[in-house]
Write a protein that binds this DNA or RNA. Structure first.
Lengths: 291, 291
DNA sequence: ATGATTGTCTGACTTTAGTCAGATAAATTT
DNA sequence: AAATTTATCTGACTAAAGTCAGACAATCAT
C-alpha cells in the first residue's frame, strides 16, 4: 500500500475531494454547472460558438440551449460573425461581465483558503507548479514576448535569484553585461517565454547587434518544469528565430561549475567551445554555433 | 497572473482536467457514476448503509435505489445489522468483489500512466505526497502499529535513509543501538505511526524495559508532511501512551548538529538536557522528561 | 406501555445532462 | 445556378441525479 501507484491514487483522492470542491465554485451561484461553464468560457474569451463547443466538448444542441438560457438571463449576447454569417460570436453583456467576475472571485477565494491554512506556502506552491507542469507538459507553448513584459520579468527575476543561490559569491546583475532590452526585440533579436497554462516556466533571449552574429542569453527553466525537455525546445526555437533574422553565428557564455546541466546541453547539441569573447566576471565557458 | 492564487488555480485546472479523467475510471464499465461510487464505497469497507450515505453525501432515497440496483445485478447483498435491525449492512458478493477489483485495476492503470509519462518520478511523487498531506492534514490519524509491520518498516526505512543523508559520515543502523521490536510493543512500550489516507507519514517509538523509565526512539516525519505540527502530536501521543503504561520518566537521545529541528522541539516542550546515558556513537544531546 | 426517534425504503416528482434526427440559412464547390 | 458542405438551431427524446413526503419497522426514552 506504499507503492508509487497507491501514492498517486492517494493524491488523486485528496485532490478530488478538496480541489473538486474548489472547482465546484462553478456552483453556489444558483446556476447549473453547464451554464456556469459556458459563461466562464465566454468570459475567458472563447467568443466563437464552435470553438466554445469544442473546448467544453458539448453537443451542438446542448450548447445552443445553454447559450440561449444565458441570453434569456441577459448575461450573453450573440450575433453573426462578420466574415461568415453561419458562425455566431458570443460575448458577455455588462451584467454577464459582473457575473463572470463574481465566479472568478469565488474561485480566487477558494484558492486563497487552501493556501491560507497551510504553513509552508512556498513548498505547497512549488509542488503544485510541478504537478501542473508535469500534467500539462504537452500544452507548454513557446511564445515570443517583450523582455520588459510581466512574463519575461518574472522569469528573469527567478533566473537571477537562482544564479544568486548557485554562485558561491552570489550574483549581481549590474556586474554582468545585462543585455539591453532593445537588443532582444525584433528586428535585432527576440525573447522567448515558455508558457504553461498562463504560468511562465522558462525563457531564452536572443541578443542581436544588427550584424550576422548574435548571442543567446538568459536560458532558464523553472524548477517545476525541469526534466520535460524544455531547455532543448527553447534552444531550438531560439536557433530558428535566429535563422529567420538572418543571423549566421550564435554565441553564448555560461558557467560550467555552477550550471553543469547547461554545459552538458550545449555540448550535446552541436555547440563548439571557443575562447573567451567578453570580460564578464561570471562565465567560465564560451560556445559558438554556426547556423 | 503569476501570483500565488493564480498558481493554485492553474494547478486546479491541470488536475481537474487530467486527474478528473483519472477519477472517471469509475466510468468505462457500463455503469453510471452513482452505482460505481456505491460499489467502490462498499468495496472499501463502508458496510453500514448510513455510513455509506454520509461518505458519498447521498440522499436516502437515491442511496437505497442505487443499492437495490447493485443487488439486482448480483453484486451486493444487504442484511439487517445484527445489533440493530433498523440499520442495514451491505457487502459484496463474489461477483461484486470481482467487479470491484476490476475498477481498482483500472484506477491503478491510469495512475501508472500518469507516472509513466513523467521523467522524474520521484519528484512527481514527492510533490503529490506533499499536496495530499497538506490537503488532508486534518485527517492524519495516529495509530499504534507493530514496529515490524509494513507501515512501521516503511517509516523506519525512510528515517534511516534520511539520517544517512544528514550525518556527514552516513548512518549505519548496526552501530546504533537498535531497539528490539519487543521493547516497542505493549506492555513494555509502543510504536505509533501517523497515517494520512493510507500513507504512513511519520512515526515514533516508545522503548520500555519493564521498569518506570522508557526511551523515545525513532521520531520521524515525512518531508511531505512537515510543517503540519505532526512531530508535536506524535510526542504528545507517546507521552500519553507512556503514562498509560505506568512510565514515570522518559529519556531520549538525538544529534543536535544534524537534526536541529528535533533539538528545538524537545527544548520548547518541557524536556530537560541531561548527561550522556549511553555510548551510541551518533547522538550528542540527551534529554529527560518526568511525567 | 406509549410516544418519539431513528434508519431505511417507496413512489412521485424535477432538474440537468446528453443524444439524435431533421430544419435552416449561409458559404463553397462544381 | 445547382448541389454540397458547414455552422447553428429546434424539437422530441432518454438517462441519470437529485428531491421530497410519507410509510414502515425497530429502538429508545419516559
Amino acid at each position: 500500500m506504499i507503492d508509487a501507484v497507491s501514492r498517486v491514487r492517494r493524491f488523486n483522492r485528496a485532490v478530488t475531494s478538496e480541489v473538486g470542491a474548489l472547482d465546484s465554485s462553478f456552483l453556489g451561484r444558483g446556476r447549473p454547472l453547464g451554464a456556469a461553464r459556458v459563461l466562464n468560457a465566454i468570459g475567458r474569451g472563447l467568443a466563437d460558438v464552435g470553438e466554445l463547443r469544442a473546448d467544453l466538448a458539448l453537443d451542438s444542441g446542448l450548447a445552443s440551449r445553454l447559450l440561449r438560457g444565458l441570453e434569456e438571463e441577459g448575461l450573453v449576447e450573440t450575433r453573426p460573425h462578420p466574415d461568415d454569417a453561419r458562425r455566431r460570436v458570443a460575448r458577455l453583456t455588462p451584467a454577464g461581465e459582473r457575473e463572470y467576475r463574481a465566479y472568478e472571485s469565488l474561485s480566487d477565494a477558494q484558492a486563497e483558503a487552501i493556501l491560507a491554512r497551510h504553513p509552508d506556502r512556498a513548498a505547497l506552491l512549488a509542488a503544485m507548479d510541478l504537478i501542473a507542469s508535469a500534467l500539462g507538459r504537452d500544452r507548454i507553448a513557446l511564445e515570443e514576448a517583450d523582455p520588459r513584459g510581466a512574463a519575461a520579468r518574472w522569469c528573469l527575476g527567478e533566473y537571477y535569484a537562482e544564479l544568486g543561490r548557485r554562485f558561491e559569491r552570489g550574483f549581481d546583475v549590474a556586474l554582468s553585461c545585462d543585455p539591453q532590452a532593445d537588443d532582444m526585440v525584433r528586428p535585432r533579436g527576440t525573447f522567448l517565454v515558455a508558457m504553461s497554462d498562463g504560468l511562465p516556466v522558462g525563457c531564452a533571449g536572443l541578443k542581436g547587434g544588427g550584424g550576422a552574429v548574435a548571442e543567446v542569453k538568459r536560458l532558464w527553466v523553472a524548477p517545476a518544469a525541469r526534466g520535460l525537455g524544455l531547455a532543448k525546445r527553447l534552444m531550438a526555437a531560439v536557433e530558428s528565430a535566429a535563422r529567420s533574422l538572418g543571423i549566421e553565428v550564435l554565441r553564448l557564455d555560461t558557467n560550467g561549475r555552477a550550471l553543469p546541466e547547461a554545459l552538458a546541453l550545449y555540448r550535446r547539441s552541436g555547440w563548439v567551445e571557443i575562447d573567451r569573447f567578453n570580460d564578464d566576471p561570471y562565465p567560465d565557458a564560451f560556445f559558438e554555433k554556426r547556423l
